[in-house]
Amino acid sequence: MSAAVSFPMKRFLFLLPLALFLVIAGYFAMGLTRDPRVLPSVLINTPVPEFALPSIQGRDRGFASTDLQGGVALVNVFGSWCVACRVEHGFLMQLKQRGEIPIHGIDWREPDREAGPRWLAKYGDPYALIGDDPESRGVIAFGVTGAPETFLVDRQGVIRHKHVGPLTPEVWDRTLKPLIAELRKQ
């Protein structure tokens, strides 16, 4: 930075920090529009990973990856401890009553064996098949980080969509319903 540096060169050097900062600020602006906690699934358009979960108390069969061959279905991760699951539960019951699509459940990390069945007895049971998942086996297979999460699986057993958070009528109408119709056509 001595006088021997030619002037334009020197100008450029002194401008560099500003340019660098503006680039960083641009990224920050983009970053503000995104939620860093949203983690896209890497499993979209890949076959359902293999898993086999035992049944919960009061049912006679569990839920395994092989059950997802042959028809479009939803897989919903829930637990009696999960407050947000209560929020979507009424809508899941509606879907079941309307006969829209089979919904399978993964009952995640219940504090004890009775908790899940008790919760379902109280609020209704929308699930076709339920797997008990006290050690997060099924949940890890699906790359789930929190409940509720819902996956749409096509008839070849390939995961097509993942929804994080409670399922609402809006999400259903806007995203899932059209997707399901399309998958059923194939």
Binding site: S2, F14, P17, F21, A29
Partner: peptide
Amino acid sequence: LLLLVFVIGGSLALFAWRGPTLRN
């Protein structure tokens, strides 16, 4: 972010403008 642009961007712009005149 606006504050950052104002403070950091502003001071670095001033630096780019006046900095080259500093003599060692």
